[in-house]
């Protein structure tokens, strides 16, 4: 259970860790958009390099980043294969033809592009958001970024608080699950053998106690918060006030420049275009 990759925050003191979480959210979104703007060999090459650069800047061990990529390796291979076999490009070189299978050079390009795009997106969101920003910073940043929506009566603070609480309780619930599973195993529950239906049924004695304790915990937490005079976001001040600094704007400028550069290269660079 502990292997579930969550709360992937990796403590370090890189420049990326010290950026304002609001800015990192914006940069993360811009970076993902840029991933979709790439169209040809040169821009995708630059994108791959930029992902590598992000890892280096943020001082996250490459091993840890690879672990998160491993989680989606199946989807990546699947989309790559689909692209190889199903791209029809009569204008392009036919590399292989066997019965109904035709592989064009454009298919190979597309497959490579898609893989680079997915990997860069994963690395981008990881570096800008989950690896370098604690979950609490992240929800704080999100709350403040979305705070203009309060005018439209969107309960931004409440959503952010819900998210913070959810994140906080994930490890607790994992621990609780392990405990209940051990207890039911002691009564002869078998979670690893038998048919799929049987194994799914074996989880009922785990899920019911888990739900019940989650409700209980939620009730207790609500009482505890009320005792400390929590009454929603109105008039609430914060312990750590977020302030943009010069380096935040420099970072934002770099990401925007990167995106613009990609768009320009799409137009001027030659070669296969997706």
């Amino acid at each position: 259970m502990k292997s579930i990759a969550f709360g992937q925050y990796y403590p370090s003191n890189s420049i990326m860790h010290r950026l304002d979480p609001r800015m990192k959210i914006i940069m993360g979104i811009l970076y993902i958009v840029t991933c979709f703007l790439c169209k040809n060999v040169i821009t995708f090459g630059i994108l791959a390099l930029s992902a590598l650069l992000l890892i280096i800047i943020s001082k996250i061990p490459i091993k840890i980043v690879l672990r998160s990529i491993k989680a989606i390796i199946f989807i990546m291979i699947f989309t790559a294969i689909l692209n190889i076999f199903w791209t029809k490009g009569e204008d392009y070189e036919l590399l292989l033809s066997w019965r109904f299978i035709n592989i064009y050079s454009s298919g190979l390009y597309n497959a490579a592009f898609i893989v680079i795009r997915i990997v860069s997106m994963i690395i981008g969101t990881g570096i800008f958001l989950t690896y370098t920003t604690t979950p609490i910073q992240l929800t704080d940043g999100l709350e403040q970024l979305l705070s203009p929506l309060k005018v439209l009566k969107v309960p931004v603070h409440e959503f952010a608080m819900m998210m913070t609480i959810a994140l906080r309780f994930i490890p607790t619930i994992i621990e609780e699950t392990e405990k209940i599973m051990a207890a039911q195993k002691a009564r002869g529950a078998d979670f690893s053998n038998g048919s799929l239906v049987k194994r799914a049924k074996a989880l009922i004695p785990v899920l019911i106690p888990l739900f019940i304790s989650s409700f209980r915990r939620a009730g207790e937490l609500a009482t505890a918060m009320t005792c400390r005079c929590y009454r929603g976001g109105k008039g609430r001040t914060r312990l750590n006030v977020l302030r943009f600094s010069f380096k935040d704007f420099v970072a934002l400028f770099l990401v925007i420049a990167f995106g613009t550069g990609i768009v320009l290269l799409n137009i001027y660079a030659p070669g296969y275009t997706m």
């Binding site: 405990k179 207890a183 195993k185 002691a186 009564r187 002869g188 078998d190 009922i204």
Partner: peptide, 20 residues
């Protein structure tokens, strides 16, 4: 090992949280 678990019964801490 599951046969052993029937012969050695373990009541864990706060066992009432396992009732379902």
């Amino acid at each position: 090992i599951s046969a052993v678990r029937y012969r050695v019964g373990l009541v864990m801490q706060y066992p009432e949280y396992q009732l379902f």
